[in-house]
């Protein structure tokens, strides 16, 4: 988010550089957790968490590091899911190629959506992305290949690279984990690259970035496309895990959900979206068996986060660590 909201995050980012040993320690712990998780928790649940964590991390690249709130990221997530599911089920593509196709499709969509949306800033950007995603939703509702209300069901998982059988749940799990780790490290690399620094400069003061000679719109579009492609990667993998691509994946509630994960975990922090995804997916799993209406709970968390908890869990944790250090 723009200047006022994001300024605490700047401290986080610089603090991140100073305490890189802590970051590395946390990453090793995280990696270990991911590796042992399927033996402790139901693997499909962890896979769902990982897909959404990658989705939220991709979204956060845009909101947290460029200050652009996209309210239409479901279009990339769900669009890629449809393409991947269709490519496997109807064309008999192997999973790796179908995922590549889905991700590529999301990237192309990102170019188109991004080109239109970056013509306006702030609130307008959010409304435009939302409207574009809604347009895509109606397209998916009517297009013959998406299967309308039913979606594309029973997508075979197939054999990765021709020899790794993904119908085995552990094989599937470690593939998803690998995709997540690669995606996450890629985002980490982007954020800490010169390109990422320019993105943060745009977030902090767009006019100044322009006056320094940066073609701001190119950087914004670049970030948008990367974010869309990674969201698509998450959607493609999700379609294989659940063997399903449906309208839920492209609906605006899905766009809202990824905003919530990022907000709850901490906008502009690398770990925030991951923590947010763990919490929101767990919460939804829990609510599915209770009689509480899910949107009411999700909406209430939104309101509470905006009013009291804008830095998110990881943001608050970082601030607390910094205070403790003095």
């Amino acid at each position: 988010m723009a200047t006022k909201a994001a300024s605490p995050n700047v401290a986080n980012v610089t603090a991140g550089h100073r305490t890189s040993s802590r970051t590395i320690a946390l990453m090793i712990i995280g990696l270990a957790l991911i590796l042992v998780a399927p033996f402790l928790i139901y693997p499909v649940f962890v896979m769902k968490v990982l897909c959404f964590a990658l989705f939220a991390a991709a979204f956060n690249l845009l909101l947290g590091y460029v200050g652009l709130l996209s309210f239409g990221h479901a279009a990339f997530f769900g669009g890629a899911a449809y393409i991947t599911a269709h490519a496997i089920k109807q064309w008999g593509y192997p999973p790796e190629l179908a995922i590549l196709l889905g991700t590529g499709f999301a990237a192309v969509m990102g170019v188109v959506f991004g080109y239109v949306a970056i013509k306006r800033q702030g609130i307008y950007f959010a409304m435009i992305t939302m409207a574009l995603a809604q347009m895509f939703y109606f397209f998916c509702l009517q297009a013959p290949f998406t299967g309308g209300e039913d979606g594309i069901q029973g997508v075979p998982r197939g054999k990765l690279f021709g020899f790794i059988d993904l119908s085995n749940s552990l094989n599937m799990y470690y593939f998803v984990a690998a995709v997540f780790i690669i995606g996450f490290l890629f985002i980490w690399r982007v954020v800490h690259s010169p390109f990422g620094s320019i993105l943060k400069a745009i977030r902090e003061n767009e006019q100044r970035a322009v006056s320094l000679g940066y073609r701001v719109n190119r950087y914004k579009l670049g970030a948008f496309v990367i974010s869309a492609a990674l969201a698509g990667l998450a959607g493609s993998v999700k379609a294989i895990v659940f063997q399903l691509a449906s309208l839920t994946d492209v609906g605006f509630q899905m766009s809202g959900e990824v905003v919530l994960m990022t907000l709850l975990g901490g906008i502009g922090t690398l770990m925030g979206p991951v923590v947010g995804a763990v919490l929101v997916v767990s919460l939804e799993n829990y609510l599915a068996t209770s009689s509480l209406p899910v949107p009411v709970v999700i909406g209430s968390i939104f309101v509470i986060c905006v009013l009291l908890f804008r830095r998110g869990i990881v943001g608050e944790f970082n601030a607390w660590m910094d205070r403790k250090r003095g």
């Binding site: 959010a126 909406g299 209430s300 009013l307």
Partner: peptide, 28 residues
């Protein structure tokens, strides 16, 4: 009234949450 001094995007997020709550309750 608590968020006027913040970035305008928070207004959108707050009212989005509110819409989910109101519509969710009536749907329930």
């Amino acid at each position: 009234s608590r968020i006027y001094n913040l970035d305008h995007l928070y207004g959108l997020l707050l009212t989005f949450g509110l819409a989910l709550v109101i519509e969710g309750l009536f749907r329930h």
